[in-house]
């Protein structure tokens, strides 16, 4: 079952958008492994506020958007778009170029 490039890449992108834009609302909000360990052991006290902590998108939400589902969903979609632009640009730039002409 080999599917075409275009179909394969489009589904990959679509799944990513659905996960970041939709499923992310259902993610656990408990502290992650490192944060929990830092709390339990005690060194959480040494954490400093993030330089960009007051930015519009900080902590995967749109500042001021009350609806939690929309807030995290839009933030996720923006992240997907930003990652796609940066990563695609980077990898297209450094990939092996196909031989430009046949001799």
């Amino acid at each position: 079952m080999k599917i075409s490039n275009r179909k394969f890449f489009a589904s990959f992108l679509l799944v990513s958008a659905l996960l970041a834009g939709g499923a992310s609302f259902y993610a656990s909000s408990a502290p992650d492994g490192l944060e929990k360990v830092a709390e339990d052991v005690g060194f959480i006290e040494t954490a400093e506020d993030h330089t960009f902590g007051d930015f519009t998108l900080s902590d995967y939400g749109i500042a001021g958007l009350e609806n939690a589902r929309l807030s995290v969903g839009f933030a996720g979609l923006i992240g997907v778009l930003a990652t796609a632009l940066v990563a695609m640009g980077l990898f297209m730039l450094i990939r092996k170029k196909a031989p430009s002409k046949n001799q």
Binding site: F9, F12, L13, V15, S16, L19, A20, G79, V80, T83, A84, V86, A87, M88, L90, F91, M92
Partner: peptide, 8 residues
């Protein structure tokens, strides 16, 4: 590129 997107 898409792998990076999926991981995000």
């Amino acid at each position: 590129g898409l792998t990076a997107v999926f991981i995000f």
